[in-house]
């Protein structure tokens, strides 16, 4: 049924991550974890998949003594999200 929908985005957690990132400049791992209500391990694996696909950029650094992971959507990710929403709209209107 959903052959036109991007399988990478058509998963609840990955879609939630990308939806958060399209509306802000960049977000910390902790922020995304809080908003999605998932576990750190689960979130890490999905962020890794999105990052490997080039949909998001991931920046890891040490802030003082604390390791931090900050995610930002890429142009490829924005285009994929745009296409996904258009495909969804087509399903609804047909």
């Amino acid at each position: 049924m959903y052959k036109d929908l991007d399988p990478l985005l058509h998963a609840q957690l990955r879609l939630a991550i990308v939806s958060i990132l399209v509306s802000i400049e960049e977000a910390d791992f902790v922020f995304i974890k809080d908003k999605t209500g998932t576990t750190a391990g689960n979130l890490s694996s999905h962020i890794e998949k999105l990052s490997q696909a080039g949909y998001i950029g991931v920046r890891k650094f040490i802030d003082g003594k604390r390791p931090r992971t900050v995610c930002k959507i890429t142009q490829k990710g924005l285009d994929a999200f745009d296409n996904y929403v258009k495909a969804l709209q087509d399903y609804i209107h047909h």
């Binding site: 058509h10 609840q12 879609l15 939630a16 939806s19 958060i20 399209v22 509306s23 802000i24 977000a27 908003k35 999605t36 996904y84 929403v85 969804l88 609804i92």
Partner: peptide, 14 residues
């Protein structure tokens, strides 16, 4: 579900 999730996440983030 997808549209609801997108709307909810964008609203929360904004």
């Amino acid at each position: 579900d997808s549209l609801r999730l997108i709307t909810e996440m964008i609203t929360q983030a904004r």
